[in-house]
Amino acid sequence: MTHSALMKLSEKPWLWAFIGATCVWIATIIFTGGQGAGEILSAALSFGTFSVIVGIGQMYVITLGPGNVDLSIPATMTFAGVVSMKIIDSQNSMILTGLLIALACGAAVGVFNYGLIRLLRIPPIIATLSSSFLVQSSAIAYGRGLKIKPPPLLADFSTTKILGVPLLAICVMPLAAFMGLVLHRTVYGKSVLAIGQNPRAAKLAGVRVDFIRFATYVLSAVLAGFCGYVLSGFSGGASLNMGAEYLLASIAVVVIGGTSVAGGYSNLPGLWGASLFMFLLVTMLNTFGLSAGVRLILTGAIIVGVIVLAGGRKN
């Protein structure tokens, strides 16, 4: 009985992310003597939601197979945040327009990325990296470093909590569930998985490989644009380095969440577990009152350790 339960557990690598998150959370509240247990969880859900949003896009891209990764996510977030906040100019009436602008910024970056990959035959990592330079520069030049306040309604939306659960997380959960369905139940999702498992076989089976890859890079960039928009609302405006931490976060939540780095197999629920784990880990290290240096070392070491344990695929 226990044996088969263990077998089941090892078949679900994403469960580890939730188990890890729970352990870290328990360690934190033992240290605080039970104080702030709920608040910590609520904050983790708030911040974790942003990682999940960009994580979904990154997961789709990584599922396309080895060498596929989107390094332009941080720059796209910044760009979309800066442009939409400047155009909205703190007016409530412009919220919807701003959202569309942020999504359009993302879509434009995605189209540009895939143009580099397809037309110039640049490997995706280098293509998204070089385009991120251009996108980041555009954000700097356009935003001039001014932090424009988000419209009050957007700020409220992204910071409101209902019974301790962030409204944003409540809204993103159906989105995540929907993207999970898309992956496993639609022609598009199955094509992404097929390309990740064997691009040649997928092509021979009639999958429109170019179109699917194009759609996936655009999807990732659009989600990054969306994340930049809501994150600007959450943190009182768009700043030029707001995307920086999401380079590691977007890749790490995908890998820790149980998605295969070799492509062709992905796991959406794991993104939530991994995002919570990443935030709770940092919170735990902060609560322990460690110095900045030790905190960074432990964050890095634990992330590498978890990936060594969870992410290794067999040769």
Partner: peptide, 26 residues
């Protein structure tokens, strides 16, 4: 040996190097 993605491991290690650097020279 573990067939890991180098981007993630080196990115994770960058935190370790940065942390060590801060310890050596705050």
């Amino acid at each position: 040996l573990r067939n890991l993605p180098s981007i993630v491991v080196t990115l994770g290690m960058s935190f370790v190097w940065l942390g060590l650097a801060l310890l050596v020279l705050p």
